[in-house]
Simulated assay, not measured.
Amino acid sequence: MLSTLEVVTTVVVGLMVGVEFSVAFIMNRILDALPEDSGQLGHAHGGRMLGALMPFWYVGSLVLSTIWAAAGRHHHGTGLVVTAAGLLIVSVVMSVLLLVPINNRNKTWTPDNRPADWKQQLHRWNRYHYVRVAVLIAAFTLLVGALT
């Protein structure tokens, strides 16, 4: 049973890392290259779509990692899992305090109602997101390391 939990947790966190990496290094660049207001509208739509899904994914990943750490507390690699769970907590806190407030504003913007500094706000979100992606990659790497 523990091995199934280990694999499921690693896959769930790995998929989340892949989505967030893609947002940071592929999707945002595609959206920023679109003409006129299309990019801003794409960012708003992405904020609505992923903003609805990601809280469950982040919290679910944290819960799975915590259960793995507790269930495998006497097994090799538990320290890595505990550290990964700690990093997932950091990613959730970062999200709630830094990224979600910007996203909540962004997802309501249209070309008619967006603020004058909308590009600066999206750039700030991107900088925070790069740090969050690095934290997620570190957590995923620790989980993979705990499997060996």
Rank of each mutant, 00 (worst) to 15 (best):
Trp125Gly: 05
Arg114Ser: 06
Ser95Gln: 12
Ser22Cys: 14
Thr66Glu: 03
Ile102Asp: 12
Leu31Trp: 13
Tyr58Lys: 04
Val92Cys: 05
Ile102Thr: 02
Ile26Gln: 07
Pro101Cys: 03
Trp109Leu: 03
Gly51Asn: 02
Tyr128Ala: 12
Thr83Phe: 10
Asp112Phe: 11
Val13Ser: 01
Arg29Asn: 14
Ala33Pro: 04
Gly86Gln: 01
Ala138Cys: 02
Thr141Asn: 09
Phe25Trp: 11
Thr148Phe: 15
Ser38Trp: 14
Ser61Tyr: 01
Ser22Gly: 15
Arg114Leu: 03
Asn106Cys: 15
Pro55His: 10
Leu31Pro: 00
Leu2Tyr: 15
Tyr128Thr: 04
Thr110Gly: 08
Trp118Cys: 05
His45Lys: 06
Pro55Trp: 05
Asp37Tyr: 05
Val63Gln: 08
Val133Tyr: 09
Ala134Lys: 10
Thr108Leu: 14
Val23His: 11
Val144Lys: 04
Lys119Gly: 04
Phe56Arg: 07
Arg105His: 11
Ala44Cys: 10
Thr78Glu: 14
His76Asn: 08
Val12Tyr: 07
Leu99His: 03
Leu41Arg: 06
Leu98Pro: 03
Thr66Lys: 06
Ala24Ser: 12
Arg73His: 14
Thr141Ser: 05
Gly51Arg: 05
Gln120Glu: 15
Phe56Thr: 09
His76Thr: 12
Ala24Val: 11
Arg132Val: 01
Pro101Val: 07
Leu136Ile: 12
Phe56Cys: 02
Leu98Cys: 01
Gly39Gln: 09
Leu31Arg: 07
Met49Leu: 14
Phe56Lys: 07
Ile89Phe: 13
Val12Ile: 01
Ile102Cys: 06
Val133Trp: 00
Val11Tyr: 01
Thr83His: 08
Leu136Ser: 11
Ala146Trp: 04
Thr4Gln: 14
Leu88Lys: 03
Gly79Met: 12
Ile89Ser: 01
Ile67Pro: 04
His129Thr: 09
Phe140Tyr: 09
His76Ala: 13
Val93Glu: 03
Met49Asn: 06
Leu88Thr: 02
His75Gln: 14
Ala44His: 04
Val19Ala: 08
Met94Lys: 06
Thr83Trp: 08
Arg124Cys: 02
Asp117Met: 07
Ala69Asp: 11
Tyr128Asp: 02
Gly77Ala: 10
Phe140His: 06
Leu143Trp: 00
Asp37Cys: 04
Met16Gln: 00
Ser38Ala: 12
Asn126Thr: 15
Gly47Gln: 09
Val12Lys: 02
Gly42Cys: 08
Thr78Ile: 13
Leu31Asn: 11
Leu34Gln: 00
His129Phe: 12
Met54Ile: 10
Asp37Thr: 00
Pro55Arg: 11
Arg48Cys: 12
Trp57Arg: 06
Val13Gly: 07
Leu15Glu: 01
Val8Pro: 10
Trp118Ile: 07
Leu34Phe: 04
Val93Gln: 02
Ser65Trp: 06
Trp109Phe: 10
Gly18Ile: 01
Leu147Ala: 08
His45Phe: 14
Lys107Ala: 01
Gly145Ala: 00
His75Asp: 12
Ala116Arg: 06
Leu147Asp: 06
Asn103Ala: 10
Ala44Ile: 12
Glu20Thr: 13
Thr141Trp: 11
Glu20Asn: 15
Phe21Asp: 06
